[in-house]
């Protein structure tokens, strides 16, 4: 056993085993969600109601350095009073393996209709945010995102 192993107390064998564990995860590009799949996922949440553009503002940095972690903020223009407020915000994407990203449920106690999170984007694609108001109306915004390095590509150490 050489000196470094004595210091760390870890054998070469253990290191190799650990290395193999990481390397065995391969970059597999799974089947993508399609625009149709996204439309279906949206239908499931909004039913037959019409979704109008407006009131919603979806913010994603125009150029994304790594698709593994993409900042996203959805804000909705609403006074957030008991009579007039947002009840939910839904985010969808068209090219990840699954069209749903997240749903947020809120109410007048929020004070401000704005949520932020970080998402994965497997490719450059369209992201859509839809807000449902307490009167049942639905509003949306969409954005095209360019991803320079895609998510889900595990490096081969």
């Amino acid at each position: 056993m050489n000196e470094r192993n004595r210091i760390t107390g870890t054998t070469r064998r253990q290191f190799l085993a650990a290395g193999v564990g990481v390397a065995s995860i391969l970059a597999v590009r799974p089947a993508s969600a399609t625009p149709e799949a996204m439309a279906a996922a949206i239908r499931q949440i909004v039913g037959g109601a019409t979704v109008r553009p407006g009131k919603v503002k979806l913010d994603i940095p125009p150029l994304v350095e790594n698709g593994n972690t993409v900042s996203l903020t959805v804000s909705v223009a609403s006074p957030m009073t008991p009579d007039n407020h947002v009840t939910s915000i839904h985010v969808f994407n068209e090219k990840n393996p699954q069209p749903n990203v997240a749903s947020f449920h809120l109410g007048p106690r929020a004070g401000r209709a704005s949520v932020s999170t970080r998402i994965r984007l497997a490719d450059s694609q369209t992201v859509i945010a839809i807000a449902r108001m307490n009167d049942g109306s639905l509003w949306s915004d969409k954005i095209d995102v360019i991803v320079t390095l895609a998510a889900c590509v595990e490096e081969l150490i």
């Binding site: 470094r4 192993n5 210091i7 760390t8 290191f15 490096e155 081969l156």
Partner: peptide, 18 residues
């Protein structure tokens, strides 16, 4: 460092190597 060495297709040492 291992990431760069792998990218260079060079010998990536064991973690903790001198």
């Amino acid at each position: 460092l291992r990431n760069c060495l792998v990218g260079m297709r060079a010998n990536a040492y064991d973690f903790g190597a001198p």
